[in-house]
Structures are given as C-alpha cells and as structure tokens.
Computed example of a mutant assay.
Amino acid sequence: MAMQFYASPEQVQRDRSEYARKGIARGRSAVVLTYEGGILMVAENITTLRKISEIYDRIGFAAVGRYNEFESLRRAGVRMADLNGYSYDRRDVTGRGLASAYTQTLGAIFSETQKPYEVEICIAEVGATPEADELYRVTYDGSVMDEPGFMAMGGQAEAISNVLRERHDTAADLTTALALAAEALGSVGGENGQARQLGPKQLEVAVLDRRRRGRTFRRLADAALTTLLSGDHDVPDKDLGGVDAAPPSPAEDKPTVSAASEDAEGKDAQPKDAQPKDAKPKDDKPKDDKD
C-alpha cells in the first residue's frame, strides 16, 4: 500500500510564503509617500500596463508582483467602492474598508488554495492634511500594515525604504518628493551596486491631490513629468495631468431635432389624427333608430 505524502501545516505555509516572495522579487519596485500637496505614487515601469490606478474619489491603488493577479484585485476593489458609494454614501467608501476587504481576500487565497497570489499592494487615501493621509500595505498572505507616511514595495523594498526614511518630509513640494522617489528607486538594481538614473520613460507616476474636490487622482506623464524630474517647479496646474477616465465633455452643436422628424417634415407628413381633405366630418351625434 502506497504511503500518503504528509507535510506539516507550518511547512506548507513556509513554502507558500517563499514562493510568493520570490515571485514578487522578480518584479520592479514601487514607492508611495506623502508630501505637502497629497500622496505621490511612483513605480518603475517600462510597459504600458498600469501598476498605479484610481480606486475611488480620494483613494489610490499601487501594486507590484504578477500583473494579472493584482489587476483582478484592483477591478474588484473598484466594483466594491462603486457599489458601496452608490448604495450608501460616497463618504462611506474609505481606504481602511478597502484594505480590510483585500486582507480577507488575500488571506483566504493564501490559506485555502494551492498557489498564493504573488502580489503586494498599497491602498492610499488622501486626507485634508498630511497627518490625515493613510497608507495601507497588504501582502500576499493577507497581512495589513498601516505605514507612517511612506512605503516601498518589491524585492528590494528594505534598501529603498532606508533612502526614504532618511530624507522623507511631509512638508516637501511635489518636485522634491518626486526627486526623492526617483532617487530611491534608482538606488538599487544598478551594475555592481551602482545607482541608476531613472528617466520619464522608466517611471509611472500619479498623485492624489488634496487640493482638488471630488476625484483627486491625477496621472503625471509626458512633458509635465519630464519638467518635474528636471527640477523645475514652475509647472502649470492644468498641465499636471488628469484622471484616467474623465467624464466626456459636452458635444458642440448638438442637434435638437431628430433626422426622422426632418424627413417627415420634408414629405409634408400629416399627423395620425389628421383627416384627408375629401373626408366628411364625423357626426358625433347618436343616430335615431326611428329614421
């Protein structure tokens, strides 16, 4: 009789953790930190696939690891936020509530399935002041941590965090905060341990702007990102970018009459209730049976 293979629960958990950590370490890192105007999210990304996205009005999402897995988590978070905001109130959608939901989902996947998700995500909610900003780190096993103003994710997160810890300042402006994030990401991964200089094409950048009402998420790219990385502080606010899917602008010269009605007018169409010219008027009086 064949012997059944046995592994202790502790060994299974260790194997799953090691598998997930190796998968996350193969990807590029991301940084999230607070600054005077809001929350800055920067990821090293050379593809067109997004690692940073908007979840709700004042809530952002950043992730590292396997793209198809954290993308499914992002879409689920958007649906949950939209449903709660529509059913109750938009103020009831919070970063803490979303982080709690992600914790339950990732914890169940890690404990109950054969393969854990190879992801690490950040849920960021911008507040009225830097002290009110919230950063939640959710790891592959469902663990959640409230980070104090900055965090780094990825295989070399510890080395990047050391750079951020030394120079992070909540009173810094956007240009200074972006320079720090780019320097921290470039401090690892170079040849022979040398630092790298990351350019606009290697970075994906977005902010949660506390000065905006409603949707605070803004994606920085192209000329605005190049200008900020060069150290220039004079970037017009209107050029800093916008949301990924802004409401469509109203159409110009929108017709007020349908094409069908114009065709009908061209043919001198008559109303349904109109009578032909030769038709005799109806006699609404009841007929006399004696006649």
Rank of each mutant, 00 (worst) to 15 (best):
91 R>M: 14
142 G>H: 06
133 D>K: 01
6 Y>R: 09
33 L>W: 06
12 V>M: 14
220 L>V: 11
122 C>L: 12
211 R>E: 13
267 K>D: 13
112 E>T: 13
147 E>A: 14
97 G>V: 00
86 Y>L: 14
208 L>K: 01
215 R>E: 14
99 A>Y: 01
29 S>C: 13
202 Q>W: 07
84 N>E: 11
247 P>C: 04
20 A>G: 03
184 A>T: 07
218 R>F: 09
255 P>K: 07
78 V>D: 04
107 G>C: 00
231 G>M: 00
100 S>W: 08
281 P>G: 05
27 G>V: 03
231 G>L: 02
209 D>F: 02
101 A>V: 02
137 R>D: 04
105 T>V: 11
173 D>I: 06
12 V>T: 06
39 I>H: 00
18 E>K: 12
148 P>M: 01
156 Q>K: 15
180 L>W: 02
245 A>Y: 10
248 P>D: 06
7 A>I: 14
147 E>D: 14
194 Q>I: 07
77 G>C: 09
20 A>H: 01
141 D>T: 02
187 S>N: 10
53 S>M: 11
48 T>N: 11
214 G>F: 02
191 E>R: 15
195 A>W: 10
101 A>H: 07
288 D>N: 08
232 D>P: 09
96 R>Q: 11
42 V>T: 12
237 D>A: 14
145 M>Q: 15
212 R>I: 04
111 S>P: 02
128 A>M: 14
178 L>S: 02
51 K>T: 11
198 L>E: 10
6 Y>K: 05
87 S>V: 11
65 G>N: 00
34 T>S: 08
89 D>G: 08
220 L>R: 06
21 R>Q: 04
111 S>G: 11
172 A>F: 10
123 I>V: 04
256 T>D: 10
17 S>A: 15
214 G>Y: 04
196 R>G: 06
281 P>N: 07
52 I>R: 02
21 R>K: 01
85 G>P: 04
147 E>N: 14
5 F>Y: 12
31 V>W: 07
149 G>S: 03
259 A>N: 10
69 E>N: 05
194 Q>D: 12
265 E>V: 11
232 D>K: 07
35 Y>F: 08
181 A>C: 04
161 S>F: 05
76 A>G: 13
137 R>C: 01
218 R>L: 13
91 R>A: 15
184 A>D: 02
46 I>P: 09
138 V>L: 07
138 V>M: 08
135 L>Y: 00
12 V>A: 10
197 Q>P: 12
76 A>Q: 13
268 D>I: 08
291 D>F: 09
144 V>E: 06
228 L>I: 07
149 G>D: 05
100 S>E: 14
73 L>E: 00
181 A>H: 02
198 L>G: 05
44 E>T: 04
51 K>A: 06
205 V>I: 08
241 G>P: 13
269 A>Q: 10
17 S>T: 12
171 A>P: 06
120 E>D: 11
33 L>E: 02
143 S>H: 12
265 E>A: 15
233 H>C: 05
24 I>D: 05
85 G>L: 03
160 I>V: 08
16 R>N: 12
177 A>D: 03
67 Y>N: 03
237 D>N: 14
122 C>N: 14
